[in-house]
Structures are given as structure tokens and as C-alpha cells.
Write a protein that binds this DNA or RNA. Structure first.
Lengths: 155, 155
DNA sequence: TTTCTAACATAGCCCTGGCTATTCTTCCAT
DNA sequence: ATGGAAGAATAGCCAGGGCTATGTTAGAAA
């Protein structure tokens, strides 16, 4: 087998090495699994703060899904210890639920502010932030925060 | 019922109106469905360019999934017209497959460059870009591109 | 108090994207 | 020419996150 039979070894390849590549995808898949939880918890916190309660119908309406979908998800959230439920009654965030909500909310806010700071319209920023926030590592979040602060300082 | 029983009407609420909110989530859910396709097509293009062929085992290795998972996904890609398959033979991108790959690759590259430009380490940029790229709207992508260009111009 | 409605709970379905285990094919090396 | 190994296909399982249809409950209105 001549050297040309195999992919270029290192230099000129546009592909990173397989295990690194794999790590990125694994991480991304993991994030995908946690995003829904974060979305729910964040939304529940907002609804409670805003209207005193978080009803399934409201959650369903804002998420754009059917009520039973929400019900099923809430069971999972309860099982995972993020919320407390009483049959036919409201939903309450547990301490770790509140903690996660606060974290998500802050991250969400930073991402959205950042997008605005680089000149994105508020409508687009809102939509993109919803998708992006879950894939932002602590390091990137820090950078976003710095950038927003600087931009405000200059204006 | 006093005015306080209902959520604040407009001004002081931290929640956007429900239908806007819903749109964001719907969009995000839609993106999630297309990300996998983009990841595959982009990876296939890279593998072909890099080594002349895209084998299931290599795709599986880089994606961090099992080979049958890849096989199943490839059927979907073929059904959707992105690739052509010949049993026990290689995979080829169709024209629209190539087009999608090119688009994804460019977007991916812009996002990664952008993250680097704001000071993220290359390792983190790689991982975050993998997750973020699928949630970047055309408007945001434009802004990223502008930013990268400017940054390079100043250096 | 009774009734009726809005909200919640449950059942049962579908599709997607993972997995393991197993059965072909190909193709290289003997 | 053939046997074996590596890669691809297939079968069959699971969990997650959607859905519709339907039963239950709480609480307001009559």
C-alpha cells in the first residue's frame, strides 16, 4: 500500500482526528438531551414569576405543543427532582429546579444580549438565542459576557 | 377579580407574547430535526474530499455511534435525495447533497472562525460550533461573517 | 347544591435515533 | 481458487418526545 492509499496523515487534512471529532458530536447529543429540561424549567420559572402560577395549558401554548406532551414531560421533571406536582394542582420548582432555572435564564439573557450587541435585530436574536443557548460552553459564555460589557461601556 | 389576579398586561412582564414565544420554540424544534442531516452530509463531503470515500465505519467512528445507526440514517438521506447508495458499495452525494454540504460547511466554518475571533480557544470553538451552527439564522450568520472580516482587517 | 366547563390525567399510537446480535458480501491473502 | 476478515445490511429492541381521544377533577356560576 502506497502512502496515497490512506487519508493524508496530519497536515493537509481538513478533518480533525476521529476521537476529537467524536467528542464534539457526543457533547452535542448530550446537550440536545438536556435542552428540553432547561427550556421547561426556565419557562416555568418565568410563568410563576409573571403570573403566580405555571399551568400546563400555558406551558403548552408557549411551547407550541399539546397539553399531554407537557404532562408527560412534567412527570419526567418531577422524577428528576426539578419540580413538585400535586394532582390537578399547580407546579412548583424545587430548589435545584430554581437553581437550574436561574442558570438557564442568565445564560439565555447573555446570549440574547450578545446577539443584539453585534447588531442582530431583537426578533432574530430572540429566536436564535433560544436555539444557541444550550450549546454555549462556560468559556464561550464568559466571552459573550465580556463582549456585552465592553460594548455597553463604549456606547 | 382585582387587576392583580391576572398576569401583568404588557409592560412589566418578562415574557414575550405567547405566539412569538411559540414561534421560537417551533423553529428550534424544526432545526433540531434538520441538524442530523446536515451533520451527516457535511461529514460525508469531508470524508470523500479527504480520503476519496465515505465508509459507514468511518462515519460511525467520527459521529460516535454504532454502524447500524449510520446505515439507518443513510437510508433516510438516500430517501431524501441527498446521497446515492449502492449495496455494499460506497456513498455518493447527489447535487443537492453537495449543495447542502457546501452550505453547512461554510456556515460551520464561519461560526468557528467567529468564536475564535472573539477569543475562544480552538478546542472549545470546535465543540461549541458543532452545536451552535444549526441554530444560526442567515441574519446572524451575516453578522458573524462581518465581524470576522473586520477583526482580520484590524490585526 | 348542583351543574358545567376548563384544566389535568391517562391510554395508546407514531416516528426518530440510538443500541446489539446476526447475516450477508467483498475482497485480499494465502 | 478459496477462506477469512472487514465492512454493510437486516432484524428487533428501547427510550424520548410528539400526537389524538377520552376519562376525571375542581371550582365557578347558576
Amino acid at each position: 500500500m502506497s502512502p496515497d492509499d490512506k487519508p493524508h496523515s496530519d497536515s493537509e487534512s481538513l478533518l480533525v482526528d476521529p476521537s476529537t471529532h467524536m467528542e464534539s458530536f457526543r457533547r452535542t447529543r448530550h446537550n440536545r438531551r438536556t435542552e428540553l429540561v432547561e427550556d421547561y424549567v426556565e419557562l416555568i420559572a418565568d410563568l410563576i414569576e409573571d403570573g403566580g402560577e405555571a399551568r400546563q395549558v400555558d406551558i403548552a401554548l408557549r411551547l407550541g405543543v399539546a397539553q399531554p406532551t407537557v404532562a408527560k414531560m412534567l412527570k419526567r421533571l418531577a422524577a428528576d427532582g426539578y419540580i413538585q406536582q400535586r394532582r390537578y394542582r399547580g407546579i412548583f420548582l424545587t430548589d435545584i429546579g430554581k437553581q437550574l432555572a436561574e442558570q438557564s435564564r442568565e445564560r439565555h439573557h447573555i446570549v440574547e444580549s450578545f446577539l443584539c450587541a453585534i447588531g442582530i435585530s431583537i426578533e432574530t436574536a430572540r429566536i436564535d438565542a433560544e436555539g444557541i443557548e444550550h450549546h454555549v460552553s462556560p468559556e464561550t459564555l464568559e466571552a459573550f459576557k465580556r463582549f456585552v460589557t465592553q460594548t455597553i461601556a463604549f456606547s
